[in-house]
Structures are given as C-alpha cells and as structure tokens.
Design a protein around this nucleic acid. Structure first.
Lengths: 191, 191
DNA sequence: GACCGACGATAACATTTGTTATCAAATTAT
DNA sequence: ATAATTTGATAACAAATGTTATCGTCGGTC
C-alpha cells in the first residue's frame, strides 16, 4: 500500500532492471481499462509515468480500492496467480506510459527468482511487507474516523490528494464525496 | 484471516508435525496476556485448544483486531519479524492449552524451510494467501455496512459468534456493542 | 444463599454520515 | 470559442451510528 521504499519496491526495481526487455511499452490516455472486472488477468503492468486506480463495481457503485503511481507494478494479483476472474477493474486515471508483460513470462521470472537465494528472500520479504501494509490499512478502518483517515492520507501520501480526483479518494476512504467535501470544509475553518 | 483449510493452515500443520518437540506446552486461564502491547515478541504461540484475540488499545478503547482458535499459530507478526515493540496485545478469551516456541528457534525453522523447495513454496503461497485474506477483510470495510459485515461473519465464521463475547465481535466489526445489539434485534424481528 | 462482575438488551438523545438536488468552476471535446 | 462533461461545494433532509445510562441475567466466589 505504501509508496515508501521497501522490500516491495526493491523487488520491483530488481525485476525491472533485469527483465525490462521482456516488457512491451504502450502509451494510453486517461480512463483506459487495463483489465476489466470479469476478465482473467493475462498481463502484469509496470507504470513508467501516470497514475492508475483499482476499482470494484459494488451494486452499481464505483469503489476505488487502491492507487498506483510511477515505478510500481499492478495486476489483479489473485486473478493473476490463480487464473480466476478478476473482481476488480484496473484503470488509468491520468494518461500513462505502461510496460506490460505476459502472465506466463512473469511466472517464469518468479520461478527463476525463487532459485536465487537473495531474490527469493526479497520475494518473501516483499510479501511480508505487503501483508503488513494491508494489516495497517484495514486496521485504520476499525480504529479511525473518516476525518482521521483523510488526515492520515494527507500526511502519508500527499501526492494522492494532489493528483487524484476527490471522489476517487472519497470512495477509497469509504465515504461519499459530499462527506469528504464537508470534512475538508471543516478542516479549513478550523485552521 | 479465514479458518478454511488453505496454504497457511497446511504450513502450520507441517511446522507443527515436524517441530512439535521444540515447543513448550502451557495451560492458561481465560484473559491471560500472552504478549502485552509495548513488549517485543519473543515467542510464537500454537493454540491446541481455546480461543485467543489480538487487540489494540486505541485512546483507552479496547479494539479487537483478530480472533484465533485451535490449530492456529499466533504472534505479533511484525514485532516478531522486525524486533520492534508490539502494537497489540495477545490475550486468551477462553482457557487455553498453548504451545510456545522461542523466536530464535522459530526463525531457524523458517530458514530451514526456505531450503526445502516444497516447504519454501508453501511459505510463499501461505504469505500470498494471507495477503489475499487481508485484502478481502479490509475491502469489506469499504464495501459493506456493519450489518452486512455481521451477516458475513455469521455465514463465514459462525464459530466466532458462538464462542466469542459480543462486545469483542462488535469492536472487531468496527461498531459499538450497543449498535451490534440493535442489528441483532432488527435481524431477529425481520425473520 | 448473597454478592459481584461480566455481559447483553434497551431507551433517549446527540452526532455522524448518506441522499438528493442544485449550482459553480474547471477541464475536455468539438 | 462554445458546448459538454467532469469535478467539487453546499443545503436540506433522512438514515445510520455513537453515547450514556439503566436494567436484567448469568456465572462464579465467598
């Protein structure tokens, strides 16, 4: 979840520098679906520039679950790993430069990595890291109010508030855009 | 998160059957702290019988984050792995039979496992599985109302509603016990 | 058996959050 | 440049959820 340098970004850097040739570069406009809900993930994407969101159609409501920026890889991870249909859509927010790789190629890379002790440890550590991030993320939904969650995002991921339309952030925070607007208004007055 | 058989429970079964001799058996009454918030985890616990919860003190409020039952291992995983102080308390709910293992021993086991391809894959798969579970869990906090989350728990983890005091479940669902009581009342009338 | 603490239900009231609608500003397409 | 679309603010009202307090039940303890 976090954008700080960690095992996950190290791992991506490693993959990216060693296997770049196996990726294909594309340029896509804003609001392009890289993977649609209901399809099975056949690719994994590396974002060179731009922003991407992962969202889920919940009873006709568009709920944003995650945001991704430069130098990150994104896929419907469970669909990718288990060959099941994706519960989520992956969509660009801004125009993007994306590099994609075929699922089979990527799985080969992962198998190769498992044979190299250093990379294998990096993989395991990265998975731990991801798990920690998710624990933290969902914990804030129990512990904190929407206002506190917004302040947390403001503090920990300011690029998000700067680059992402507010209604996506609202659904990411689990509230309506009307309510987020109220929170912002209240915070502005308080200052 | 889930209690269904998966890579994680297979992994635990594997560890448990192969390394049981290195664990120490203890019997503890209900409401025993196995690890206190602020301490650094020195042990990992295997639950033979009984139930355990993980909770966090949030501004004086007791917030339950997770429940564990028989045949599961529990630790403050981030504290365990990174030697940082634990943000959570691990406490028995019912009287338990617990087997604990020292952190150093457990880390040796994990290193040994990494050398055995089959176990190593199981470890990686288990971490993926955990990550998926967490994604699912925190997703429901964005997607679902407290009532829907309660119905989900009723359906997916009925043992939880049967064995765990209601106010723990309420804080696990992110609501007050008063509100959970209202939900139950409403559901009872609806039927 | 009496007492005590933990647990759960309920009521009355306060606060938070959602819903719907309208408008203005900003952005994009033609 | 103009029109269309997207985005964000706001208001009025409805629904959901929290807060505090009271009460009854149940299980253990002395």
């Amino acid at each position: 979840m976090s954008e700080q340098p960690n095992h996950f970004s190290l791992l991506i850097g490693q993959i990216w520098s060693a296997y770049k040739k196996q990726f294909t570069r594309i340029e896509v406009p804003a609001k392009t679906d890289l993977l649609k809900e209901g399809e099975t993930a056949q690719k994994m994407f590396f974002i060179e520039t731009g922003s991407v969101r992962v969202w889920h159609n919940h009873n006709g409501r568009d709920i944003t679950c995650q945001f991704f920026f430069e130098n990150n890889m994104v896929s419907s991870i469970e669909s990718f790993k288990k060959d099941i249909v994706s519960p989520i859509t992956i969509q660009t927010i801004e125009a993007c430069v994306i590099w994609w790789i075929d699922k089979r190629e990527m799985k080969k890379i992962i198998e190769e990595m498992k044979e190299v002790p250093q990379l294998r440890d990096m993989l395991v550590d990265a998975l731990f890291e991801r798990t920690f991030d998710y624990i933290k993320h969902f914990t804030t939904y129990i512990l904190n109010t929407p206002e506190q969650r917004y302040l947390q995002v403001l503090r920990d991921r300011p690029e998000l508030v700067q680059r992402i339309p507010q209604h996506y952030i609202a659904s990411y925070l689990g509230i309506t855009s009307v309510h987020l607007s109220r929170i912002k208004n209240k915070l502005a007055k308080g200052k």
